[in-house]
Amino acid sequence: MAQTSTMSITLNVNGSDYPLQIEPRVSLLDALREFIGLTGTKKGCNQGACGACTVLVDGNRINSCLTLAAQYQGVSIQTVEGLAHGGTDSSPSEELHPLQSAFVKHDGFQCGYCTPGQLCSALGMLAEYKNGVPSAVCETVCNQPKLTNEEIRERMSGNLCRCGAYNGIVAAIEEYAGKDFMDNKPATREGAR
């Protein structure tokens, strides 16, 4: 068997570099939670079924449980900790990202365990929509559909909420998309760390 040991990698998370000495088998999810200490990203099923571990990589949403941390060097990783404005490691953020505020307003959660994944997934989903990515409920893949309630539910189907807060989640996304997205502002806030 080949010699296996730890390896040195650097992950860029929420704008900061984190040098790590890890085994190749460590997932991005475990690197974030257990090695960097960013426990906002949650471990649900650990097999890509629930979406609780969703983070943004260069703005694209991915399941951090189904990836090796070593695969994600040299890219920009954003977790739920990076969404609110003005926060630092030592001083928690004061100003929520507008999507977070919309989740609070619309009761987009109960226990909150799926929420970090829902937030990151929704931001990635809106960026995909803006980029013209079709969905399974589009009438045709050739035309950009309206961002209906049905479209949001289909595009968010990789995120489960066992409390069943789906109506609130969709309402929050609709409000945020209407205010901050549909008028062509970026899906993730500029200046968010």
């Binding site: 890509g48 979406g51 969703t54 694209n60 949403r61 991915i62 399941n63 189904l66 990836t67 997934s121 990635g124 989903m125 995909e128 990515v133 079709p134 969905s135 399974a136 589009c138 045709t140 893949v141 050739c142 595009r155 968010m156 189907s157 990789g158 995120n159």
Partner: peptide, 18 residues
């Protein structure tokens, strides 16, 4: 279009991105 259609029927947005 049948290929686009089939792909977006598979997995989730997160998985299709990877």
């Amino acid at each position: 279009p049948v290929l686009s259609h089939a792909i977006v029927y598979g997995a989730s947005g997160q998985i299709r991105n990877v």
